[in-house]
């Protein structure tokens, strides 16, 4: 379905994940983050960029991989994106909801 986020019309699924990550930009990220109760900082964007790179490289995301990224450790990842970090970070990064169990 269509949704207007940060003044742009984008395609999202029923859980609010962008269905075309090419439509993503930082303003959209900020607005989605606000819906999730998160105020984005440069630190968040470092993690978001890593997640997007992994998605582009078709590497399935897991909490373990994030912890080994060298960008952020697991503790900080949970602090940056509280209550479901992998899902929230993915939604804010404009990529599909991760299907990982780990």
């Amino acid at each position: 379905m269509e949704k207007i986020i940060a003044g742009a019309t984008v395609q999202v699924n029923d859980e609010g994940y962008l269905t075309d990550h090419h439509q993503w930009n930082r303003e959209i990220a900020n607005e989605i983050a606000e819906e999730e109760g998160i105020e984005l900082t440069e630190r968040h964007f470092e993690v978001i960029t890593f997640i997007q790179d992994q998605y582009a490289a078709e590497v399935p995301l897991t909490i373990r991989k994030i912890g080994k990224s060298g960008i952020v450790d697991i503790k900080e990842f949970y602090q940056l994106f509280p209550n479901g970090p992998l899902k929230k970070a993915s939604r804010i990064a404009g990529i599909p909801k991760p299907v990982s169990c780990i």
């Binding site: 399935p60 897991t62 909490i63 373990r64 991989k65 912890g67 450790d73 697991i74 503790k75 949970y78 780990i102």
Partner: peptide, 18 residues
Amino acid sequence: KLDIPPVGEFLEMITAAG
């Protein structure tokens, strides 16, 4: 292969996550 960590590391992940 499935990125499932050894027990010690897994426990550390869980406690790091709160």
